[in-house]
Every structure is written in C-alpha cells, then in structure tokens.
Design a protein around this nucleic acid. Sequence first.
RNA 1: GGGCGGUUAGCUCAGUGGUAGAGCACUUCGUUCACACCGAAGGGGUCACAGGUUCAAAUCCUGUACCGCCCACCA
Length: 866
Amino acid sequence: MTNMEPRYDASTVESKWYGRWEAAGLFQPDPDPNKKPFTVTIPPPNITGSLHMGHALCYPIQDLYGRFQRMQGRSVLILPGQDHAGIATQSVVEKMLRKEGSSGAQIGRDKFVERVWEWRKESGDNILHQLRTLGCAFDWSRSRFTLDEKYHEAVLKAFIDWFDQGLIFRGKRVVNWDPVLQTSVSDIETERKTVRGKLYYIRYPFADGSGSVTIATTRPETMLADVAVAVHPSDPRYKGLTGKTLILPLLNRELPLIADQYPDPAFGSGAVKITPAHDPNDYQVGVRHNLPMPVLLDSRGRITEEGGPYAGLDRNEARKRIVADLEEQGFIEKIEDHDIPILISDRSKEPIEPLLSEQWFCDQPKLAASAIDVVRNGDVKFFPERYEKIYLDWMENIREWCISRQLWWGHRIPVYYGEDGTAYAALSWEKAQSKASASKIVRQDDDVLDTWFSSGLWPFATLGWPEQTDDLKRFYPTSLLVTDRNILYLWVSRMIMMGLDFAKSKPFEDVFIYATVLTEDGRRMSKSLGTGVDPLEVIQKVGADALRYTLLSQTGANQDIRYSERKTEEARNFCNKIWNATRFVLLNTEGSLRQQPAELEDVDKWLLSRLAMTEKTVKSAFEGYDLQTACQALYQFFWSELCDWYIEVAKPRLIDPGKRETPQWVLLTSIDAFLRMMHPVMPFITEELYANLPLPKKAEFIMSAPWPEIPPEFSQPDVEARMERVFEITRGLRALRAELGLTPGVSVPVAYCEGDIAGGDWIVKSQAWVQEIRAGKPDGKHISATVEGVDIHLPLGDLVDPAKELDRIGREEIKAREELAKTEERLGDATFIERAKPEVVERAREQAEEIRSRLRKLEERRKLFG
RNA sequence: GGGCGGUUAGCUCAGUGGUAGAGCACUUCGUUCACACCGAAGGGGUCACAGGUUCAAAUCCUGUACCGCCCACCA
C-alpha cells in the first residue's frame, strides 16, 4: 500500500464506504440472540427540515454510540424515521398553495392532505439522505414515519385507551390561540416576552350615577367582552360598593362590581375588568361567580358580533379605535408606560390570543407520578445529571395538555358524535357506530392531534406496538435517547409517561442531552438571522469525519458549544495527520513480523503503556458521555506520543533490517488499536486505513471489528516515567541548540551529560541531533542546562554571544530565586510542616534543594562568561 | 420573581484542594527520505470581583457583577 496520496482526500474515501457497510448488512442488528441489544430510536426529524448543525451533532452522537456498542459486542439497532410535524408541514404546503394563487380553504381538506402527501413523497426524505453523508449507520429497513398506516393505528389505539380511561377528555378552556396559524397550541409551544406597552386606566361609571370605578388594563379592546369588574374584598377603597352595577363604556352594558380574591390591591387601581373568554385568570373568576363568557375574537383575531360597532376589526385596529373613542368620551383617566409580558407562538412568532374554546385535553397530572418515580429511582438516568432536577421540577408541576389542533395535517381525532352529541372514540366510523348502537353517528371530530402526541409513542410504536412483535420484545425498552434540551418537556417527558402506561415500562435507560451549537461569537444559529452554517458545505470542504470530530470533540456536560470554521480546519488537519502517519507506517512495515517480539526497548514499552492508558480513558469517557475527554485522549496519544515521539525515535531502527521488526510490530499494534478507538468518531478514514493495515487477524470491516483489548501487562508506569525523563532531557538539549541558533537536523559533534539519562543516550542523540554524548563536563566554553536533575552541556562557546548568554543566565537566576523564596517561605511555616501531608512537605524540601543546586550551577555558568 | 449553566493565555476551551494546561493565533528557525493540513524552540495568565473555610483555593462555602438558557397567571 504505497500508492496513498500525501494529502488526505476525504471526498474520495467517504463516498466509498457507506454503500459497502450497507450492502454487508451492518446497519441491521445482529440476529445472534446471545448478544445483548443496544437500541436507539432517533429523534425523528421533521419532514420539512433540512440538515443544520444541531442535526450534525445529534445524529453522529447516536451513530458514535451505535458503533461503539457494536464493537463492545452488542446487537445494535438504530431506528431512523421522520415526524409529520403538523403545524410546520401544513404551513409549508399552505405557502406553496398561496404561490400558486390557491389555498387550503379553496381546495378543501381532502385535496389539501393529498397535496401534503405528494409533497412529502417528493422532498420529505432529503434530510434522511443527508444523514448518510454524515456516516450515520442507521437501519433504513426499519425506518418509520409518524403517519404510516401502522403508526397511525398505534396513535388511535393510544387515544382510545386513554379516552376510555378518562385520561383524555373534552373541555372548554381558555387556550393559547395562534391567530395566524388559526389553531390552539400548548403552553410549552409558546415563548414569553416582555414588550413596552401601556397601562390604560379607564373609568366605568356606576349605573346610578354615583361616580365611577377606575380599572387598569393593558388590553382595552377586550373590554367589549367584559362581564364584571372585580375588587379584592379587603380593599377599603371599595368597601360597601360591591354588588352595585356599573355601565360598560362604549357599549353601555350593565356589569356587576364583584368581590374576588384575584385582584391585587397594590396593582393599578385595585379594580380589574373581567373578560373570562380572553384571559385565564378572568376565566377562573368567571367560573367562581358563574358569569357569562362571551367570545370577542374569531379564529383570525378579529372582533366578533359581541363587539357591536367594532365587529369585523382586527384586534390591533380595534384597540386604537376604542382608546380614541374612550378618550373622546372622557373615560380615560390616564395612560402609563408599562412593560407587558406577552406570549409569542413558537411557530408563527405572533402574539398568542388567550381564547375560550372547546378542546381535547390529556390529564397529565394523573400520569406524572410513575414518570417521576422512574427517574427518582434511577431507572431512567439523565446526562448531564442536572437535567434530572429540571425534569422533576417540571413533572411535579405538570398541567393538563391541550392535544387538539385545528389543522388538517395529522392524526385526525378518532372521536365520532351521535345525533345527541355523545362522543365515541373508535378506530373507525363503523366501530364507532357499533359502540353507539341505536344512536346514529353523524360526524367525526374535525381536529387533529398535537404532533407530540404521536411522537410520544415513538420508542415503541416504531417497534410495532400495540402488536407484541419480535422487535418490540427484543429491542424495547431502548437503551439511549439523545436529544437537545428544548424538547425535554415537549417530547422526553411525554415518551416517559406514554411508555410507562402503554408499553408497560420505561422507554429508555439513558437520556443524553447535548449542547446547543452556537456561532463562533456565541449567537444562535438560525437561517432567518443568516447565522446558520450548512453542514453539507462543510462536509464538502473538510469531510464528514472532520465535521463530526469538530462537534463531537466539544461534547460533554457543557450546555453550549461554539462552531467555527477554524475548528473544522484543525479537525481536517488531524485527519491528514492520521492519514500520513498511517501511510508512513505502511511504507515501513512491508514483510514485517506479525507477532509480538520477545525483546522490547523502553520506548516500545512506553508507547504501549500510553496506549493502554489511552484505551482506558477513551472507553470510560465514552461510557460517561464525555466525548470531549475521549477525543482529547485520542488526539494526544496519536499526535504527540505516537507521531512526535515514537515514530521519530523509531525511524533509525526502521531502516535497520536487523532492528526493524520490533518497531514495526509496535506501530501496527498501536495504529490498529487507535483506528478502532477512533472509529466511532471518524468512521470513514478509519475504515479506509484499517482496510490497508497488514494485520494477521482482521475483521472484514473496522466497523464490525471488536473494541481493542489491551493486555494488562502493556501498562508500565515506571517505564513511562523513565522515558519522560529522556524526552525532557532531549527537549533541554534542543533548547540549548536553539540558543546557539542551530537549526534542527544540523548535527552537533558532541554534547556532555552529568547524571543518569536512563539508558536513553541513543534517543537523545537521534532526537537532539548530536553525534556523541560524553559523560562529564567540557573544558572550554559551553552553555548548560539542568533538566530532571541532569546537567547537560553544549561545548560550542565560540558560537555564543556572551552578553546574550549572561542575560539569559540572569533571567533564569531571577526566576529561580523567586521560586526558592516562595518554597522556603512555605517550609518556614511551622503549621505547614505540621499539618500538610508528609509527601507534600517532602516534595517541597526536594524542590528547594533542587532550586538551590540550580542556582549554584547558574553561578558557575555566570563565571564562565563573566 | 425562581432555577440552571458560564466567566482561566489574543481566540476556543480542558483542569474539583498542593506553586496554571491544550489547540489555534503570535515570534524565531527549518523544505531531515509520513505529513508545510508539517517539525523545533519561544513569548504570553494577580484563573470576573469581594469575603470566608484551610497549613494550602482556579478548585470548597457565602455574596456581588456580567453573559447565556429555562421556568413563572399580576390586570
């Protein structure tokens, strides 16, 4: 294998392997029943989605664990799929229709849904293809879509079950209404924002002409649907007035002045107008006092008939007109600036209208208890751990979930109504009819289910539930969920509740929540802000392996990571380094010994010991979701230990036919193990290089190879310490050379050395480019350094500028004196001697002694030049 | 209002009790037969701030400031 290019070309290599893995069936779980399964059902991306940096992290993490666990001997299933994403998809298709001059309303429900399916067939799979580019080894033969027929049946079954148990019910509530999308959305799908607004103080006169009550409101337009004014019973300002009748300005309707706990006497005037249909608090008041609840806004946020002369106006326009009219008629007492908290719809980014309407709800509070237990008792574990508390806090305060959406794209609610309005939940119209018996079914509910209702079933519905399929039996509960923190409440908590109730056990063991990918300067990546970066473009430039490494090597317990092009270049350089080092090894291992040689030099033992340490670190870091540490250990082992030291030291032996077999074996052993450990992070380059390694025993693919087993005897800490000394001395000598302006590679005839260099003469000679090392000290002028207690001298005084050298010695002396002063101060402290651990005191003593000796030597050297 | 992260070298980040580390950037040198997407040598930090615990604090505790995220029905 000598035809490797000196520059690694990712695109050639990366296009080669994916198809081969797939053809070899490696994406399917190993059928061997003795292998413990490792299962992941991936968070299904939306069919509207295109790949972004978050995906480029999320899915490779799962792929990494699939590959890692496969190497650990598990039967791995990573099940991919997609989410129909009700609101998002419906919006996309609506937009397309509008461009064509049409609309959903125009073509009707059936045609519209047909249209969405068409669109999905054309472009809905894009994102899954993009995951292949990233190297994700997912089982495409088991891919699922949340609107597949089978999946749909599972959703209906779940709904009907909960309906029958009373866990799903219909109710009239003030919900979050999105006037743009014209549907309800759940509490979690809204975002709180504070905007600068006004607080209007409006006088409501008493019907009997005895003055007025001033209310304070931020939303004057809703007064048209007022049904009362409330004050706190303890408020002295309104003592004896409750029960009287007020006149609603503009509409001249009568309103009672009522007493309720809700108004805060300290806020505004202490009196609150009550609009039950458009404010959740007012709604509660309305219920307590049995008040009427007129609805003022229609589905687009326009004023209804209730608004009398204002009917038909948009709510914002209505506000202006109403304030102007109130002002003109003298009802406004004052207007103050006020920060108003408003709700914004996540999807449309428009302000939410609280709106009283009839919706379907899920009784989450009843389901929460076991979902709390399963996390409390450690059956489901969160990584990083802090998310456990966030999850529990949420679950302990969980509220009803509005699951109906006024959309067409989604799972239509399987509820059918009889003539008398009775609701029957059933799999079909016919089944509903048989449930209803005598009563005739006249219509099906128009609403569809919240997308999260169907995705909550994902871990088991994808495996065949409600049927007890072989897959469900073998692969459920799944092993790992990898997701981002934004959907902890929307999705993770629902899967846990639904999994426990429907599939009778937790949906997954571990939940790993990865960091948000930000831009280099810490801003959110977003298409609309223009701060997004397309992963596919990055892959074209540096390769999928490099992109994976860039993101994975920053992944741990952190909550953000910053993406930058610079980092991808570093990762690409690392790929190139791996490529070239392996290339070098291949060029130097032809006809090599394939068995462990009897005799190993210290440097060989050193590298193998470092390899053993690295394997330990990497494995436990992977297991603990600390990819950062794993990547760092791999990087350091490969670049600085294997390349910078071992290969350089091994070069002379590699050209010597009598000595080459040992370093050949060490290099092959190390590279083989390194590539296997690196494979979960960089699947392509490792596969390509592994294919070329001349190993005695080799798997068909590195992907199907086992995790490297490092013999325990490779670990030799004492040899490591010895070698580190030799390397330090080498560095010291190189520094002396640099002092003389001698460039690396230029050979120096002789260096002197006083002290034990641990049998590393030959290493120091070759690595510091010295022909001979003599014991002792040179006679003439020389420069010196003390490293690891060893004095090294370079007898090349002629080359030295004495002034410069004296300056250097002076600087070192100052440094040493400062160090000595600090250390002596510590040693002079009686409590330190008494209370510090003995080994710490001992070390301080040794250090002091070492510095003193260094100072003495510096003094001698000064004399030499002075 | 409550909670959670973060604040360490110019930049991006490691580092959970014993005198500060990496990569990049920077300076100097170098085309030595794997790699210039490379190698060698160097410069660079009162570890946000203030208290406290300790013989000893970047590290533990308390508080403050700033940045970010999440939760929360004051009209």
